[in-house]
């Protein structure tokens, strides 16, 4: 396997306004995450949770993740091994949740042009996607510096942990 194929994934394409109730249905919100994840997106694509493989990429339409603040919408995708979510626009809370939990969320103005059966190589640092068959490169929006740092640390919790530890060791030395 080439190194590009190592971080390449099959595309699962969805329409506009995919909401948090179909990502994490309320009926299963008190169930363990593995159970909730089995129902992720089932009301729009029953095959998804059964057939999605680690490394696959979800490509949505406009306003992906609209609705609730429930982080389980992100956690269910992560639990199923989804490597990245790509959309022309995201709902604000979902987008923040995804980055806070270390799920790569890429704003891609040309997401609608991504082929349904494409396999994409993701370059998180450059914020680009490459269709392995056609070679087409999709350029996504890059993130502000403070968010890149947080993602580099692995999400908000590890980022906070690092900051708190630095603060504590400074206090211990004082």
């Amino acid at each position: 396997m080439s190194s590009a194929a190592n971080n390449a994934g099959r595309v699962w394409k969805f329409g506009d306004n995919i909401d948090t109730d179909v990502l994490a249905p309320g009926l299963y919100m008190k169930s363990p995450l593995a159970e909730l994840a089995r129902h992720c997106l089932e009301s729009v694509e029953p095959r998804f949770a059964k057939e999605v493989k680690p490394g696959d990429i979800v490509v949505g339409g406009r306003n992906f993740g609209m609705g609730s603040s429930r982080e389980q919408a992100v956690m269910a995708l992560r639990e199923l091994g989804v490597a990245a979510v790509v959309a022309p626009s995201f709902a604000g809370i979902f987008y923040r949740n995804a980055l806070n939990l270390g799920l790569l969320a890429l704003v891609c103005p040309e997401a609608a042009q991504i082929r349904t059966d494409a396999v994409l190589a993701v370059d998180a640092t450059a914020a680009t996607l490459r269709d392995l068959e056609t070679g087409k490169i999709y350029v996504c929006e890059t993130l502000p510096a403070h968010l890149l740092q947080m993602i580099a640390d692995g999400g908000l919790l590890p980022h906070l942990e690092k900051k708190l530890n630095a603060q504590r060791s400074k206090e211990a030395q004082a």
Binding site: S69, E71, R96, N97, N100, L101, L156, L157, L160
Partner: peptide
């Protein structure tokens, strides 16, 4: 405005 639980944890700490 609304935030998710991890973001809330950040607020609760800082």
């Amino acid at each position: 405005f609304g935030v998710g639980a991890t973001e809330m944890c950040g607020v609760l700490v800082t």
